[in-house]
Amino acid sequence: MAFGRLRKNKQEQDTNDDARSDEEDAGAIAEAPASGPYDVADKPSEEGYVDLGALRIAAAEGLQLRLEVEEKTQRVVAVTLDLNGSSLQLQAFAAPRSDTLWDDIRGQIGKSVGSQGGTVDELEGVFGTELLAKVPAQAQDGSKGFRVARFVGVDGPRWFLRGVFGGPAAMDPAAAGPLEEVFRNVVVVRGEQPLPPRDLLQLRLPRDSSPLPRPGGATSDRPAPPERGPEISTIG
Rank of each mutant, 00 (worst) to 15 (best):
V187Y: 03
V186W: 01
E31T: 09
R198H: 11
P173R: 09
L83E: 05
S98M: 11
W102V: 05
T219I: 11
R162V: 09
P213C: 08
L81C: 04
S233R: 13
D82N: 11
V77N: 08
L161P: 04
E122Q: 14
G125Q: 12
I232R: 14
M1W: 07
L195G: 01
G118P: 08
G27H: 08
R222S: 11
W102K: 05
V76C: 02
S209L: 14
E231D: 15
A176T: 03
L203A: 06
R5T: 09
A218E: 15
G118Q: 07
I109Q: 07
P168V: 04
R150F: 06
V79C: 07
D22R: 14
A133L: 06
D121V: 06
I29D: 14
V79M: 02
Q138L: 09
L132C: 02
P211V: 07
T73K: 09
A174G: 02
V148N: 01
D25W: 03
D103E: 15
P44G: 06
L65K: 03
V189Q: 15
A2F: 09
F93M: 10
R207M: 06
S143W: 01
P211C: 09
A224M: 06
K144N: 14
R184C: 02
E47D: 13
L90A: 03
Q64A: 14
D18A: 15
F93L: 11
F160A: 13
G117L: 04
D221K: 10
I57Y: 01
V187F: 01
V189I: 11
A78F: 04
T119S: 07
R7V: 14
E24S: 03
P223D: 11
A139S: 10
E71G: 05
A149S: 15
R228P: 07
E192G: 07
I105C: 06
R7K: 12
E68W: 00
W102D: 10
S233A: 14
T219K: 09
A28R: 15
L131I: 10
A175M: 01
A30F: 10
D103F: 10
L83S: 05
Q116D: 04
D22W: 04
A54Y: 03
T119A: 00
P194I: 11
R75N: 05
R214K: 13
L65I: 13
G142V: 08
A174K: 15
V120T: 15
L195P: 00
A176N: 02
G167P: 03
V186Y: 02
S209Q: 14
I232Q: 13
S21Q: 10
R5G: 00
V152F: 05
R5A: 12
E24C: 00
G117N: 08
R5K: 10
E70F: 03
E47L: 08
S98A: 14
G114E: 15
I235D: 12
M1V: 07
P33S: 12
A176G: 01
A59F: 05
Q193H: 08
E71R: 13
M171E: 15
G177C: 00
G53L: 08
P168L: 03
S220I: 01
A28V: 09
G145W: 02
G107K: 11
T100I: 08
